[in-house]
Every structure is written in structure tokens, then in C-alpha cells.
Deep mutational scan, measured.
Amino acid sequence: QVLVIRIKIPNSGAVDWTVHSGPQLLFRDVLDVIGQVLPEATTTAFEYEDEDGDRITVRSDEEMKAMLSYYYSTVMEQQVNGQLIEPLQIFPRAC
């Protein structure tokens, strides 16, 4: 299952990153890619938005798994409803 992660860049749009092994993705892998997209920032975590629009911070593989399972459940709903699949949007955080 292909996963598209949209890395939101403060004040300048976003970069889409296509991942072919989504469920095996590790927290460190995401930080590495964010580091390539935002080389001047030191990113130690990132956030995503849940169904209520609240930002949830991801700082570990466990939290990463929770984010992915949340995302895959929303994708299934979108597929069932015949909607366009939205990329998983993440917001890098420099701490």
C-alpha cells in the first residue's frame, strides 16, 4: 500500500513524499526526510491533525504507529465513500 506523506513547510507550501512501505515506516525515517526538506531546521518531532483538527505530536515509533493506523482508517472511509484519498499531512516541529 502506497502512502503519500505531505510535509508542510512553514510559510512556503508543502512537499509530497511517496512511501512504498508505509506500515513499516519508522519515526527516524520520517525525521531523515524532513531533514532533507528543511536542512536548516533541527526537527525533533512532527505533528498531524486528528479528526477533530487537534494537533497530535509524534516523537517515537509507538506514536508513529498510532498516527499510521489513524490515517489508514480514514483512508478506508474515504475509499468506501468514493472520495479522493488525501495525503497524510505532517507538520515538522523544531524543538
Rank of each mutant, 00 (worst) to 15 (best):
Thr42Asp: 15
Ser60Gln: 02
Gln36Trp: 03
Leu38Ile: 08
Leu3Gln: 03
Val19Ser: 06
Pro23Glu: 10
Glu62Met: 08
Tyr48Lys: 00
Thr18Tyr: 02
Val15Lys: 06
Gln83Phe: 08
Thr44Trp: 07
Gln24Gly: 09
Glu49Leu: 08
Ile5His: 02
Tyr70Phe: 15
Ile9Arg: 13
Leu68Gly: 02
Val33Tyr: 12
Gly22Leu: 05
Ile9Pro: 14
Ile90Trp: 00
Gly35Trp: 09
Ala94Gln: 12
Gln89Asp: 06
Val80Glu: 14
Ile7Arg: 01
Glu49Asn: 08
Ser60Cys: 14
Ser69Phe: 06
Phe46Gln: 00
Thr44Arg: 09
Leu88Trp: 02
Ile90His: 01
Asp61Trp: 03
Asp32Thr: 09
Val19Gln: 04
Gln36Asn: 09
Ile7Val: 06
Trp17Ile: 09
Ala94Pro: 08
Arg28Phe: 09
Thr44Glu: 12
Glu47Lys: 02
Ile7Trp: 03
Val2Gln: 14
Pro87Asp: 00
Leu31Gly: 04
Ala41Ser: 13
Glu40Trp: 08
Tyr48Pro: 00
Glu86Asn: 07
Tyr48His: 01
Asp61Ile: 03
Asp32Ile: 02
Leu26Lys: 14
Thr74Gln: 12
Gln89Asn: 14
Thr44Leu: 11
Phe91His: 06
Leu3Pro: 04
Leu31His: 02
Thr57Met: 14
Asp54Ala: 13
Val30Pro: 00
Tyr70His: 11
Leu38His: 06
Ile85Gln: 15
Glu86Tyr: 04
Met67Asn: 01
Arg93Met: 13
Gln78Pro: 10
Glu63Cys: 05
Glu47Cys: 07
Thr74Leu: 08
Asn11Cys: 04
Val15Ser: 03
Glu62Ser: 11
Gln79Arg: 11
Ser73Glu: 10
Gly82Gln: 11
Gln83Met: 09
Tyr48Gly: 02
Gly22Met: 07
Leu3Asn: 05
Ser73Lys: 08
Leu68Asn: 01
Asp16Lys: 00
Arg28Asp: 12
Ala41Val: 13
Phe46Trp: 03
Asn81Val: 12
Leu38Asp: 07
Glu40His: 15
Ala45Ile: 04
Val33Ala: 12
Val80Trp: 06
Asp52Thr: 09
Arg59His: 13
Tyr71Trp: 04
Ile5Asp: 03
Phe91Tyr: 14
Glu77Cys: 10
Val33Leu: 11
Val80Leu: 11
Ile85Met: 07
Gln89Met: 13
Ile34Val: 05
Asp50Phe: 01
Asp61Phe: 06
Pro92Ser: 04
Cys95Gly: 12
Trp17Phe: 09
Tyr70Cys: 05
Gly35Asn: 15
Glu40Asn: 08
Asp29Thr: 09
Ile9Lys: 14
Gln78Gly: 09
Arg55Met: 09
Leu25Val: 08
Asp50Ala: 14
His20Met: 10
Gly22Lys: 13
Glu49Phe: 11
Asp50Glu: 04
Pro92Glu: 00
Lys8Glu: 13
Gln1His: 00
Asn11Met: 09
Pro23Val: 10
Tyr72Phe: 10
Asn81Leu: 11
Glu86Val: 12
Leu26Asn: 14
Arg55Cys: 03
Gln83Pro: 09
Asp32Met: 10
Cys95Arg: 13
Val30Lys: 00
Tyr70Pro: 00
Cys95Asp: 15
Thr42Cys: 11
Leu31Thr: 08
Ala66His: 13
Asp16Glu: 07
Met67Ser: 01
Val2Glu: 14
Gln24Cys: 06
Arg93Pro: 06
Ala66Trp: 04
Gln89Arg: 08
Thr74Ser: 12
Thr42Met: 13
Asp32Leu: 05
Tyr71Gln: 03
Ile85His: 10
Thr43Gln: 06
Asp29Asn: 09
Thr43Ser: 12
Ala14Cys: 14
Arg93Phe: 07
Pro10Glu: 07
Glu49Met: 04
Asp32Ser: 07
Glu49His: 01
Ile9Val: 14
Met64Glu: 00
Val2Met: 11
Ile56Gln: 10
Tyr70Arg: 11
Trp17Thr: 13
Val58Met: 02
Val75Gly: 07
Val30Leu: 08
Cys95His: 15
Glu62Val: 13
Glu49Ile: 07
His20Asp: 11
Met64Cys: 15
Ser73Phe: 05
Pro92His: 04
Ile9Trp: 04
Met76Leu: 10
Gln1Met: 13
Pro23Tyr: 10
Glu77Asn: 12
Gly53Met: 03
Met76Asn: 14
Ser69Cys: 08
Lys65Thr: 10
Met76Phe: 12
Val30Trp: 05
Ile34Gln: 01
Leu88Phe: 03
Gln1Arg: 06
Glu40Thr: 15
Asp61Asn: 07
Gln83Gly: 11
Ile34Lys: 00
Glu40Ile: 03
Ile9Thr: 14
Pro10Lys: 06
Arg59Thr: 09
Tyr70Lys: 04
Gln36Gly: 04
Ser69Arg: 12
Asp16Trp: 00
Met76Trp: 09
Arg28Ala: 14
Thr18Pro: 08
Val30Ser: 04
Arg59Met: 10
Arg6His: 00
Thr42Phe: 13
Ser12Val: 10
Glu86Phe: 04
Asn81Gln: 09
Gln83Val: 11
Val2Cys: 08
Thr42Lys: 15
Glu86Lys: 09
Tyr48Phe: 00
Pro23Cys: 14
Leu38Cys: 15
Glu63Ile: 00
Gln83Ala: 13
Val37Asp: 01
Thr44Asn: 15
Met64Gly: 00
Tyr70Asn: 11
Gln79Val: 07
Gly22Thr: 05
Ile7Ser: 01
Arg93Gly: 09
Glu51Trp: 08
Glu86Arg: 09
Leu38Ala: 09
Asn81Ile: 07
Ala94Gly: 10
Val33Asp: 00
His20Pro: 15
Ile85Trp: 07
Glu77Ile: 10
Leu31Ser: 05
Val37Ala: 07
Gln36Lys: 11
Val37Arg: 03
Pro87Tyr: 05
Tyr48Asp: 02
Val4Arg: 15
Glu40Met: 12
Pro23Trp: 06
Tyr72Ile: 06
